[in-house]
Amino acid sequence: MSLVKLRNITKEYQLGKTVVHALRGVDLAIDAGEIVAIMGPSGSGKSTLMHIIGCLDMPSVGEVEIENMPTDSLRERQLATIRGRKIGFVFQTFNLVASLTAQGNVALPMIFQKIKRTQRTQRAAELLEKIGLGDRKNHHPNELSGGERQRVSIARAMANDPDIILADEPTGNLDSESGATVMRTLRRLSDEEGKTVIVVTHNPEVAAYADRVITLRDGKIIKEERRD
């Protein structure tokens, strides 16, 4: 059964008098435990699609179901809860909070789910340990390398043990070595913990970690290939 279902997703932006069609009717079903890579030229709608899957944005037309729950009728608080509990985001630019330590950043999503302080710090420490940054937990983001920051943000994405991890060009700002480490980490999360990973990338080497590669162009899926 599919974890994420998209039906006829259309997204339009009004820019003055012109209408930008970011997505033009996307149908997609993603199964639990899959790693899906989304590729395509710049401006083809990859980020827009990710935001819609991640409940950060609503489609103009079409339906989104997360774990068989339609999201269109949900209210702001409920969407926030879904983002917090079921989805973990990893961004190209890391987007760590500068005033918080690595551990503080990993613990941040748990604050909004009302998890107790002791439990938060413990889990954050464990997650950092798991991605090999146990000794850097009291460092602030500006004291970490790009690769390390991205691993911290993966740990943050894992904080509330979500089913889905959305990564928008997670290796875009990293050298190939660090990029490979990040992808191995995501692969392991999928293999060992059954996480569903959706990763946007321009890089075929990155896409090689995926079970399925979807190619977007002008807001439409033009190609879909499965590998084994």
């Binding site: 991640g54 950060l56 809860t81 983002r83 985001f89 961004f91 987007n95 999503p109 909004f112």
Partner: peptide, 9 residues
């Protein structure tokens, strides 16, 4: 980011 990781308004 805070909203993306689950913060409500």
């Amino acid at each position: 980011v805070m909203k993306a990781v689950g913060a409500q308004n």
